[in-house]
Design a protein around this nucleic acid. Sequence first.
DNA 1: TTTTTAATTGTCAACTGAACACTTAATATT
DNA 2: AATATTAAGTGTTCAGTTGACAATTAAAAA
Lengths: 233, 233
Amino acid sequence: MTKYQKQTRLLAAVDCIVFGFDGHTMRLLLIQRALEAERGKWSLMGGFVQPHESADEAAKRVLHALTGLQGVYLEQLHTFSDPARDPIERTLSIAYFSLIDISQYEKQLSEEYHAEWFDLSAAPRLIFDHNEMVAMAKEKLRYKAALHPLLFELLPKKFTLPQLQTLFEGVYETKFDKRNFSRKLLSTGLLVRQADKDMSASRKGAFYYKLNSKNYKAKFQDFLNLIPRTGAR
Amino acid sequence: MTKYQKQTRLLAAVDCIVFGFDGHTMRLLLIQRALEAERGKWSLMGGFVQPHESADEAAKRVLHALTGLQGVYLEQLHTFSDPARDPIERTLSIAYFSLIDISQYEKQLSEEYHAEWFDLSAAPRLIFDHNEMVAMAKEKLRYKAALHPLLFELLPKKFTLPQLQTLFEGVYETKFDKRNFSRKLLSTGLLVRQADKDMSASRKGAFYYKLNSKNYKAKFQDFLNLIPRTGAR
DNA sequence: TTTTTAATTGTCAACTGAACACTTAATATT
DNA sequence: AATATTAAGTGTTCAGTTGACAATTAAAAA
């Protein structure tokens, strides 16, 4: 078989930025690096792209292998290619970001794996350029979640409006007016109110909602303008 | 020096999608592939990432080498990694897209290089997954240009409102109401009317405008909502 | 002087967005 | 049993924006 002669081959890795929400703050999933050079330091979940898999497949595989996570939202973010980004050997890294509902996975994570959640605003220094990757992922999350109903990936299937608002407020680091917030979110037609309430957070209780998955798919590509231009209250 | 043993190294390439605007339609810059396997077929401008350059640097270098273009808008789009995307040998491709003012470069392109402009809606079949790359770039251009003042990259430094509107109409394949269009664009504070007119396209002539570069930088990251929700006329 | 053609400009009605506060439901307290 | 407490839920108003719509103006051509 013909090959491209005289060209240098490079290592290609994937790194996964995993965001979660615990009901109060945005969190970031990290592991302690297993390989030498910076072994034991905090790191994103990463691994090398294998000969017969695409980067998407590699990201899925690596995430599953290191955390047990499966079937989660996963999207390519950016490829990082500074020749000196990995001091051991030149390695391209294709970064992915993922959004998951913490409550669904936290037991599994703590028992079988040693990945840990960090408060996003208090994450430790990471190896290589991983802090830069996280910063870019945060920015993209804010950008995209302002236009598309993306943050639902971070909540359980049943959630309340106060939970949803707390999540938005965490992502945008601001407060929203709850009257305007609920009006806007309900007007999307994406939410279906359930008969039961979450009685754990208040005396009165808050009605549960579920996503209307038909409208969700249809409206995902619409521009929704979910975020007020000036923060309120 | 320590290396990562036992990992497969892969070829890494960059491919550049270059959009231009000729005053009437959106155009795509293509070259005829110089390497064997599909030699002579139409292709994006591509080349391999070299050992001591980042992908951004590689994209700049390749674009300049193949077309003479320099100092143009260039942004990473997506990394394409299907193991079978290049039949010769597995190659990752980091795709970039670029926006240029055709009039400024067309002589150079036709004389020194053999890159050619194609009408975007009538582009030929390209090698490998290049058509898929172009499709993704078109989508991203529409997405981003709806929110950010990006399309100015495609116009000369002095341009008229009718030119700008024709450009937007080309990108979004629709017609806008010119009264609403000019009101919206002028309200951004990005445009500065010049004293002279372009007399080449009409008897009355159309005033030239320039970008207010200070406001341009400040507002680039704002969300501008440049596109009407329903097409007019 | 009149005609032609494209550029430029204005109004109005509907909608959207943001500011703002009271009522209600359930439990806890007395 | 009545009252207090706490967070959930809900409406209105005003200002700004958007989109539908057509008449006027500037310059060259006839």
